[in-house]
Each structure stands twice: as structure tokens, then as C-alpha cells.
Nucleic acid binder design. Structure first.
Lengths: 228, 228
DNA sequence: CATTGTGAAGCGTTTCACAGCC
DNA sequence: GGCTGTGAAACGCTTCACAATG
């Protein structure tokens, strides 16, 4: 039972930035850069250098004072920390507009998340092939999850079907869910859920736009799009 | 002139949750609910009640002690605060897989963000019609932005083209950008950028999955390769 | 001597706990 | 009595500033 020393807990905010560093480092590596300073990495990542150093320090002391970080080694360490040393097959629920776009998104498989299956409830869609993956009936979910050892599910259904999709994913054995439906999913505490909501993002931008205009209302008297 | 009363600043974290409350309240309203407690709203939104109350308190004191919040009124106030009292036309750059899915996403227009235009560089795509919107050449961007009074742009191009797309949007007069490309965009400080990155989300989930398994898997940290 | 690694300060967010009010 | 609104405490994240060091 080797009581493995409990791994350092990495702050959520840091975990969310590691993928960004990873992408930048990979690009830099491809361009032949083999050492990089926190300053430079911060510049490319649009953050500040102290933050980069703090973030990287959670992985261990992998830099060299006076020099910087060895790109290849850092890439390796981040990949290891993020669990990217092997593929994580994903299953997509919902073969509509979005599901299709996701299936067609090459970055998916390239970045270590091959599409193990796409399922839908609509008989009209079953059997069609999206980017090389055949759409199967949602009842086959448990089988796909088990045979392909899927632990990440993607909910790409309309809002009304999302909770059912999540329930089915959880029952099938998935332990992480990426939810694109504009719904707050109810799942067991142990299940990790992340949400991507287009409308929310746009509404946040709307807030800032409105604020921008708001300050000038009296000063100018125009410039504000006619309100309803 | 007119030293406009500075509007309350609402914390970013709160701004990001208001759209969620708004959706829930709208749904509840449609179901005939006309009063709601912070407790109930918190439950539906997957957050805690104190947070709901604090969030709503930034809008003003719109609740009634001992009773709760009037749904319709709260909907109105949140919409006003988020600038959702009028439409915000958006322009999409990139008519590939993702651009098409976005254009086809009904929620876009329904939620007050009609697609004012889609542009691409690829001549093969120009002229085709996606969900009722004709794809136009990217050179027409300034014209679209000006005639349709667009202030929000969506970058749905491949990574390599994203910075150019952002530059063009900014030059055309857009002041907010929603970026789907896995790239950190460099834009003037005044421009508001939000990013949606599929790979980042999956990698965050991967981290948690790996952690879940991690307790047992590998034993030793890899030794550092003979460092420089 | 440039650059990392990190205590400590600063800041924004969350949560608590209860006064205020209907 | 029940629920909001909010100071204050707790917490987590960011930034500073500098000692450590290759």
C-alpha cells in the first residue's frame, strides 16, 4: 500500500495556467529555444513574472538561478503534473452542431484527448460518421466508457437534455465532465465538472461594453446603441 | 463635464455569476415562480446563499426581508446591469468548423447577440451561407463593424491566424473580443478580451483525473537529466 | 550578476454571523 | 419568524522585494 507521500497541492489558479505555459513552452521548443526566463514566459503568456515563478515553484525547483528554465525539461514536468503523459480518451454526448464541431476539432486528438465515441438520442444521427467517428446510440455509453476506458465526458446537448446526459455519463463511470450546455449540472461531489458557456462569456463582455458607454452618457449624448 | 456619479464597481467574480443567476431567474419566471429566496437561487445555481446575497447586494437592495426577491424585478435589474437591455451584434472571424457551429448556435441571437456578419480569408468560403448569414471577405470587416455598430468580435480562426484576426477587429473598431483560438492575444489595454480554450479545460480535467489515480501509480520522481 | 525561489504584504473573494427589517 | 443586507473574519491568490545561488 506504499503510503505515497501526499503530493503537493497545486492552487486551482495555477493549475488553470499550467496548460498555457505548456503550450507556449512547446511552441518555443519547436522554434529551437531551449532556455527561457520567467520574464520572457510571462510576456508570452500575458501574465507577470512573479506569478510565473510562483506557479512553477509548485512543481519543484526546476529553474537555474541566473539562467532560467530549460524548456524541454519544464515541458516534461508540466506534462507530468497535468497527467498528460498518456492519452485521455473522451466521449461526446450530443451530435448536433456543437458535437460535430468538437469531433472535427483536430486539436482534440492531437493534444492527447482522442474521441473514443460520440453518442446521441436521435435515430436520424446514429450511424452517420463525424470526422472518422461513427455516431452511436446513447444506450451504448456504458459499453464505450468501459471498453475504451474513458474517464472524461463532454456534454454537447441542448440545455434540456444536459442533466440526463450527465447522469448517464456518471452512471457509465465517467469521473470528469466538460459541460457546454447552459445548465448547472447536479452531480455527485466526487465528479469534477468544468463548464464552458458561450452566453455567459458574451454577457460578461456586454457588461464591460455597457460600462464603457455608461460613463459617457452625459458627456456625449450619442454613442449609445438605441435601447429597447 | 457633469461629474457623473461613479457607478458602483461590481467585483469580477460577481459579474461572472450574474449571467447564471439571470438564466435561472428567467427560467423560474417562465415557470410561474414570482418570488425566490437567496437559498433557493443558490441551490439552483450551485453556489452558497451568502454569496448570492452579497452578489445581489452590489446591484442595490432589491430584496424584501422575510420574503425574498421578486423574480421579474431581479431579472430586470440584472439585465440592466449587464447591459442586456439592447442587442449587441457580434461579428465572427473564421468560417471553419467552429465559426459555423457558432453561427448555427441559436442561443446566440436569442440571447441578444445577433450575428452581424461572418468573415473569412478563404475565397472558397466567401458567399456561402451559414444559418442565414452570408460569409464575407475579411476585408469587409471595417464596413460591417461600422454599419452594424458591432462592438464585440469573436475569433474563431486557427491559432496561426488569431493574432491577425484580433488586430483587424481592433482596427475595425471592435472593443471586446471573445477568443476561441489557443493563443494569448496581444491587444491594446482598453480592449476587453475573454478566452475560451477547449484544450485548457480538458487539461485541467486531466490534472484532476491524474491526481485521483496518482496516489498509487508512479513511485519515484524522475531524476533530472544531466542539467546544463 | 542575472535570475530563481520564496517569505511576507497586499488585495480581492468567500464565508460567517447577526443586526435590521418586513 | 423568516430572510435580506452587510460588517468582519477567513481564505486564497497576486505581487513585492530580496536573499540565495549557479
Amino acid at each position: 500500500m506504499a503510503p505515497e507521500r501526499t503530493r503537493r497541492r497545486i492552487p486551482d489558479a495555477t493549475v488553470a495556467r499550467l496548460p498555457v505555459y505548456l503550450r507556449i513552452l512547446t511552441e518555443q521548443g519547436d522554434e529551437g529555444v531551449d532556455s527561457i526566463s520567467s520574464e520572457r514566459l510571462a510576456e508570452l503568456g500575458g501574465v507577470n513574472a512573479a506569478k510565473v515563478r510562483k506557479d512553477l515553484s509548485y512543481l519543484g525547483s526546476y529553474g537555474t538561478r541566473g539562467v532560467g528554465y530549460e524548456v524541454a525539461y519544464l515541458v516534461y514536468q508540466i506534462r507530468r503534473e497535468l497527467g498528460l503523459t498518456h492519452d485521455w480518451p473522451v466521449v461526446i454526448v450530443g451530435a448536433g452542431n456543437l458535437g460535430q464541431a468538437l469531433a472535427g476539432y483536430a486539436g482534440f486528438g492531437e493534444r492527447g484527448f482522442p474521441v473514443a465515441g460520440i453518442v446521441d438520442v436521435d435515430d436520424a444521427k446514429i450511424g452517420t460518421v463525424l470526422s472518422g467517428v461513427r455516431v452511436r446510440h446513447i444506450d451504448e455509453l456504458p459499453q464505450i466508457v468501459q471498453t475504451k476506458r474513458v474517464s472524461i465526458g463532454v456534454v454537447a446537448t441542448p440545455a434540456a437534455a444536459a442533466q440526463d446526459a450527465a447522469d448517464r455519463l456518471v452512471r457509465a463511470g465517467v469521473t470528469s465532465i466538460l459541460n457546454f450546455a447552459p445548465v448547472v449540472l447536479a452531480v455527485p461531489r466526487a465528479i469534477e465538472v468544468r463548464k464552458v458557456d458561450l452566453a455567459v462569456e458574451l454577457q460578461i463582455l456586454s457588461y464591460h461594453e455597457q460600462r464603457r458607454a455608461g460613463g459617457a452618457i452625459h458627456a456625449v449624448g450619442t454613442a449609445r446603441p438605441a435601447s429597447a
